[in-house]
Design a protein around this nucleic acid. Sequence first.
RNA 1: GCCAAGGUAGCUUAGAGGCGAAGCGGUGGACUGCAGAUCCACUACACGUGAGUUCAAAUCUCACCCUUGGCUCCA
Length: 486
Amino acid sequence: MIKIYNTMTQKKEIFKAMHENRVKLFVCGPTVYDDSHIGHARTYISFDVIARYFKYRNFSVFYLQNITDIDDKIIKRALQLGVEPVELARKFERRYLEDMHLLGVENVNFYARATEHLPEIIKQIETLIDKGFAYETETGVYFDESRVEDFGKLSRRNVEDLTVHRVNLDKTKRNPGDFALWKKRDEKPVWDSPWGLGRPGWHIEDTAITEEYLGPRYDIHGGGLDLIFPHHEAEIAQMEAVSGEKPMVRYWMHTGFLNVSGEKMSKSLGNFITIRDLLKEYEPEVFRFFVLSTHYRSPIDFSESALEQSKNSLERIYKLVETINERIKADISQPNQEDDISQKNQEDDISQKNQKDDISQLNQKDVDYNNKLRDAKNKFLKAMDNDFNTPDALSVIFNFIRDINRGINNGDISKNVLIEVKKFLMEVGDILGFDFSRKTGADDKTTDLVEVMVEIREKLRERKDWELSDLIRSKLRDLDIILEDK
RNA sequence: GCCAAGGUAGCUUAGAGGCGAAGCGGUGGACUGCAGAUCCACUACACGUGAGUUCAAAUCUCACCCUUGGCUCCA
């Protein structure tokens, strides 16, 4: 069973879906006024893995994300650049989706734009007014925070503490903490509404969208830590007032911040890194590994050396898969028993299964390694079940890798076991979002050319012409082609 | 001030009452024509400080020190 840390209760809870094995997941998307940064990437990679793991655990996941494409920041930015706000929003939305694709974040089922849900937004506001939770003034429609007794339950705040901070206090509001549902505006872009021309407030789009696609109550709502207050608090107040049903969300999940060299990332500090800049320097999978090497709720510190470490660690896994591929390919003497091997990916007991199927083919070493494999699999799942503890899960994998490498060195592992090991590693890759059977990145002609060079070098080595063969190796290395002798 | 999250080996991170973790880095060894990869060993007396509870504390309790974040723009 999967345990999830719930921000609402501040405890790990056993996950129980509302409807059998279906998970309804909503994660707050970006406001598309600029290129997304590596903090966004951290959050969305984390939830990508969470969605992947639910699927692996046989849940049917509906993962919904909103796109905030109308907002003061967008308008301000568009004004600076002299473009239409809608144009600007579409451009950065497109770039956001490109970034996500490059990062291998591909489990969102549906992206919902705020501007395409104006009827739903207006309907929710009307309901809130009808029920007495919202009121209209000359400047807009506001949510009456004083009507909600448990306001602040997610962030554990007293409403009284919050009144001090507001800078531009709108005098038409009843309470300083009341937030805008509808902003009356004249300058475009504006939409028509029962309260005249204007734009929706920030919080209402999410509840309008989630009610539309997920209903008034659903399983999981995620986002960055910074959204807890006021955004998620406002969402709870709105949705629970609209529907009269509680709780709006059963599990609240929040990702920790990404800092850069120990400091908060911000434009003013000049340490603001966009995903596009990141990907000029590092492979997407290296960044993904970096993200997963820290628990999703913990703060994570981005630095060049941390990324170097991630790169080297990841290399260790790739190397093993490569080695296994070569061993399997080289070992043609043993017939392939792959047809026997179950496609089921849960913790099925491989050693018992094989023993039953064909006990004569297995020696004691195979049994031992199959036990190690089963053990690693169980531990990996246990770590992931425990609030998606990817660092723990990775350490299980590295322990397993050392065992397997030792076995390969000693010649203790049969081809059949290696096939199973590879299958497991590929499965792990699917869950975490890595392709461990890495493509070379070279075209066919290049590959052929390298093959020719290798062949020539082998001849030279047979003749013990170390000088020339080393020269070939070092020249190839200059071209980023690494040659390693067995 | 209020609300959080932390301080674990040189670095990055797990763990959360008993069996000393993982990766990275460094050093030495095995293997190799050399190199790389891999393995082994060391680095290593790991848990911020001081008390307390307990047969037993990184883990629970209290106090203190330090770091970071949030407190109506935010992933």
